[in-house]
Design a protein around this nucleic acid. Structure first.
Lengths: 307, 307
DNA sequence: TAAAGCCATTGACACGTGCAAGTAGATGCT
DNA sequence: AGCATCTACTTGCACGTGTCAATGGCTTTA
């Protein structure tokens, strides 16, 4: 009953032959005493950690519920590889918990961000963006928006950007993609139109926009939340959607079917990406270097009453 | 330049006097080599973990965005105590990562749930519900809804319950609280009325409800999402809110101001609770036993156009 | 000068685990 | 009997850290 014997039994070491009587004695004692192997000691000994650490900085406001969904399903997918995803929100100043020893670190910042190198140095484990090739992913949705509106016969578009400054970079990417899609379709480029969070202010902004561009007949919103604001503002202004102006969002927000009129939107299927990315992370955790799969660069319209 | 000397310098041990020259030499070498203390070894040595593990089972669908908000702000509050909150979603079958060694484990299940004892045995660290006294917290919002509707002159109420079975227990608590508030106000008890997720089905359900109870003039919705569905169904049925029926939700969802009409709702202020609960968790992490603060059992109305 | 005291530094250990290497004892083969 | 082979188990080490007790050099005091 030395420690080694116990260890052989509990780890089912096939190179050691253990008679059944001893085996049972060890198992009984282990169960009776409620023995649990102590994680830190195993790690110190050199065991591979089963922890994958997800770090997110900016997406607190649940606004990025698409990212939240990806993270959730990624956690489920990683569990099938024997890995455990834990999520640390708002790890601003790189004061991440040093005493959890992850096998892999994922971050919400895009590839190429200096934070990735910083984290890599700090943890000395593989660090990857959880959203590889994010720009193309973001751009695809805006392109799909424009294509859908054009297919519905709309020609004079505006791009409804959010007023939150932290979303500015993302909005710029999508707006450029909308421009490119408009150019490809041979219609005028959609001009930018900022939507305040406040409903009354949004109504005023929409009125001003229509005064400046009376021929406007379609709005691509940055995401569904901006689209909700536009719909509310339009109703307040007496603008009829979609007969006067069509409105389309991005993300397929669960509340989209409930607006008046129900919101058309655009969606990317990320299930395959999540599966592949989980496998990629499992490879990294196993010590193999590998290139990550990319987020889909295709999006499809979810047409409803607002277009 | 032995390991001990280095350790004394890096941990600023005040019981040891280290001459400045040696101190600098150690610091320089440490910085040059990019030394990071290895978490698992510190824990094995007996250091206190700075990790607080939050486990959630059911609240994937972002439906419980109130819980999500509490968790987020709790993470920020704990950081001020030098603790790091990490969040493992959907830890169903208790297969939680054993190799992260938390100082405290928090769970989304209410006090008294057998899972708490199970986790306590598994981790052998303090385990607490992150939502202590949850029932009273849930009940308070329903009471506030009824009081608000009564103050607006409504007398014949219905309780709009969600159709998702996993929310049934919570809905029952709130419905009972609504009954109690109605009894206290001297009006008939609100009868239950189930709202399907699908908009068309919700419209049919609302029509049937009105046919059965033509005198209905107010609806307490289980939460804002159910209220959104009710508003959409009402619009589809040609029912005018609030002149014919007033509708009020729960949670102060960020999209509430954007519905047509803007949704009245009910909210509890949890900032004080979060602060106190963070301090409580810090006590637990320091090894002191302590009773947790309780979630507020008061809620206040956020009146908008729908009542 | 020797005894005593202070200061900087160091060797050694413990924490819990997993595994390589080694050791008895039993059995088989010649 | 003598030697090889197997089984059943043990000893011992390493992982990286923090801290106690001990060491040796140097200065002060009697």
């Amino acid at each position: 009953m030395s420690r080694a014997t116990v260890s052989y039994v509990l780890n089912r070491d096939s190179r050691q032959s253990i008679p059944e009587t001893t085996r049972q004695k060890v198992l009984d004692a282990s169960a009776r005493l409620g023995y649990r192997p102590y994680g830190p000691a195993r790690l110190l000994r050199g065991a591979r950690s089963s922890v994958v650490l997800m770090l997110t900085q900016g997406l607190e406001h649940a606004s990025d519920f698409v990212a939240t969904g990806i993270i959730t399903s990624l956690g489920a997918a990683l569990r099938q590889h024997g890995l455990h995803l834990v999520w640390q929100l708002g790890a601003e100043e790189c004061d991440t918990a040093i005493d959890l020893a992850p096998a892999v670190v994922l971050t919400s910042v895009p590839d190429g961000d200096p934070l990735i190198d910083e984290l890599s140095e700090q943890f000395s484990v593989p660090v990857r963006s959880a959203f590889p090739h994010l720009d193309a992913f973001l751009a695809a949705s805006a392109a799909a928006q424009v294509e859908h509106l054009v297919a519905r016969g709309r020609q004079r578009l505006a791009y409804a950007a959010p007023s939150r400054p932290e979303l500015g970079a993302t909005a710029a990417i999508r707006h450029r993609a909308a421009d490119a899609a408009a150019a490809a379709a041979g219609i005028p480029l959609p001009h930018r139109f900022e939507v305040p969070d406040d409903r009354a202010a949004a109504g005023a902004a929409l009125r001003a926009e229509l005064a400046a561009h009376p021929e406007l007949d379609g709005i691509c919103a940055f995401n569904d939340e901006v689209a909700f604001t536009v719909l509310a503002a339009a109703a307040d202004c007496g603008i009829v959607v979609p007969s006067q102006i069509a409105v389309i969002g991005v993300d397929n927000h669960p509340l989209g079917p409930l607006t008046i009129p129900a919101l058309s939107t655009v969606e990317s299927d990320v299930t395959e990406f999540v599966t592949q990315f989980a496998a990629h992370v499992a490879q990294l955790a196993a010590g193999e270097a590998a290139e990550p799969p990319l987020l889909p660069d295709q999006a499809h319209a979810v047409p409803r009453a607002s277009t």
